[in-house]
Amino acid sequence: MAAIAIPHPPPAAPRRRLSSWQTWGVIMLMPYILVFLVFVLYPVTYGLWLARHPQSYRTLFEDPVFFRTVVNTIVFLLVAVNLKFLLALFLSGFFVHERRWIRWLSVIFIIPWAVPAIPTIFSIRFMLNPEWGIVNSLIFRLTGADGPNWLNDPTLALSMAMLVHIWKALPFWTLILMAGRLAIPREQYEAASVDGATAWQKFKYVTWPSIRTLYLTSTLLSMIWTLGDFNSVYLLTGGGPADLTHVLATLGIRYIRLDQVDQAMTTIVVALPFVLPLVYFMMKRLSVDE
């Protein structure tokens, strides 16, 4: 109950006394305001202005890579995010078991989240190398057949990129859902047990209703972040083969590498109608109890 006077029009009430606190407040807010103006507001405004030419949009829509990219992005979002969350939901149920060894396992499980992206993605990239990679060499040893050319087939390559994404982000979301599960009072489960509920019924009638909101919010937030996941695709496939595995995040950067910044901005503007509603929803959620 932090209380502060809400100003109202008083009969000649001087507010001078508070002014030094307000002044300091403004001064201390300045660093971030500057950061925001200089590195967010100006760049974004400038970027939008760069994307003002209708011609850029025509060029973009005519670029065959663009259409493929949009499809890839949608597939990536729907499949990778949902698969990741189903796994996280399942694994969070596993990790809430109270065992010493499961606690240790959870410490190991965090590693993908704790280490930087490049080393592990490169590692996976080489594991998938058709000639020398450990995956195909295992397949050969076990079956005698040659494994697929993982990163040279657009569908397989995109699937692998999704797998990399899931590998990296799964621990974080598992932790979040775990926190949600741990917040459910134990009595609810005990009551359900007494009532003779099966494990599935407990999940359906106790767990899910309690963490549903968390699950949905997290899914949306993860979608926003996944849209910005450049590493999983770029570092694994580089957008290849033949620019067939690009997503919007890598396509924008591809245009920059081609020195077409206007085109890069246009790509992003095209994505905004999908991003902004998600952002709006998230902001509303987070400022509920302000």
Partner: peptide, 22 residues
Amino acid sequence: AGLEDIGGGQIAIDGRVVNDVD
């Protein structure tokens, strides 16, 4: 105590009006 603005009227300590005193 000076933790809340004085909406109207006066408060004095030792005869000194403290409305605007920190």
